[in-house]
Computed example of a mutant assay.
Amino acid sequence: MPKNPRRDLLALAAAIVAPLAIAVALTPFRGTLSAANAALVLVVVVVAVAANGSRLAGALAALSAAAWFDLFLTQPYGQFTIAAPADIATAVLLLVVGLAVSQLAARARRLHLVTITDADQLAQIERTTALVQSGAESRVVVDQVRAQLVDLLHLQGCQFEYGKLLGHPARLERDGSITQGRARRHPTRDELPDEEVELRASAAGQFYGRFMLQPTPGAAVPLQARLVAVTLADQTGAALDAARSDGTRGPG
């Protein structure tokens, strides 16, 4: 997911302030508003923070909501103590549900960013997925993905290296950004560096190889195309993982 430091800082601040403000706003109604309904209102606030911030902001908002719920909306008021067992259960549920929905909201925001709207790109993913699911030899999948990457990323060339991690080339990351040494280029920049770039193929935590991309200087490579490339590399990793499980030899 593209990083925006200013937005992330604002989201972290909102994670603390927004649940506090809502909890304070609900205090005049705590005599008539049930603890469960108050907790639901706070869950909505947590979702709003998570949907516009990071997973960390969502988790912090859930913790903040649970704390302010305890302090302002359960007896004895003004203390981090809960007398009624039912309110204790509600507070725990608020925390658990808040954490869960905050992570789902953050994931949904990320998935929205990677939605594929180009029909040709979607077709490429579908073709490779079908090839992997058909049980095709891993080298066939590698060859197909290599050709797809050349077209998709406007490359001068592309090679696959099986099980190698030599050197420290620039790397295409899962969020579409490029890592060069310790520097990380913002993923919304629409080009690859002029130097060779690696795109790793892995599955189930196992590294199987990498595509070595040879970019065309000055060619525009949008974020969406780079994210599709990452998906294709993942499918390659899945094919190689299946080949390993079946005892089939991968590409050399």
Rank of each mutant, 00 (worst) to 15 (best):
R226W: 01
E137F: 09
V141P: 03
T115L: 13
P28F: 02
A89W: 10
L71T: 03
L40S: 14
G209W: 02
V92W: 09
R185T: 11
R184L: 10
T90K: 04
V142L: 08
A170C: 12
G176I: 02
L94P: 09
P76G: 06
A105T: 00
S138P: 08
Q156A: 10
S34F: 00
Q133F: 06
Y208W: 07
D87V: 08
A18K: 03
D241I: 02
P85V: 01
V114N: 10
R6F: 12
R7A: 15
I178M: 09
A123S: 04
A225C: 08
A243Y: 01
L60N: 06
A100Y: 11
C158I: 03
V145L: 15
R110Y: 04
L172N: 01
T27R: 14
L12Y: 00
V45P: 04
Q235D: 05
Q224F: 06
G209P: 05
L213S: 04
D87Y: 04
V49T: 00
G247A: 10
T231V: 01
A203G: 06
K3V: 13
P2E: 15
G163K: 14
I16G: 12
A220K: 13
R185K: 08
G237T: 04
E198N: 09
N4V: 02
D118C: 05
L166N: 15
G181S: 02
Q156F: 02
R139S: 13
A11D: 07
A108Q: 10
S245D: 15
I178N: 11
R146T: 06
G176D: 04
A203R: 14
P222T: 00
E126A: 14
T90I: 05
D151K: 15
V197T: 02
T216D: 08
D120L: 06
S245G: 13
D118A: 11
A61I: 00
L149Q: 14
Y162V: 05
D234V: 00
G181H: 02
A106P: 00
F80K: 09
L153T: 01
T117L: 09
R171M: 15
A38G: 13
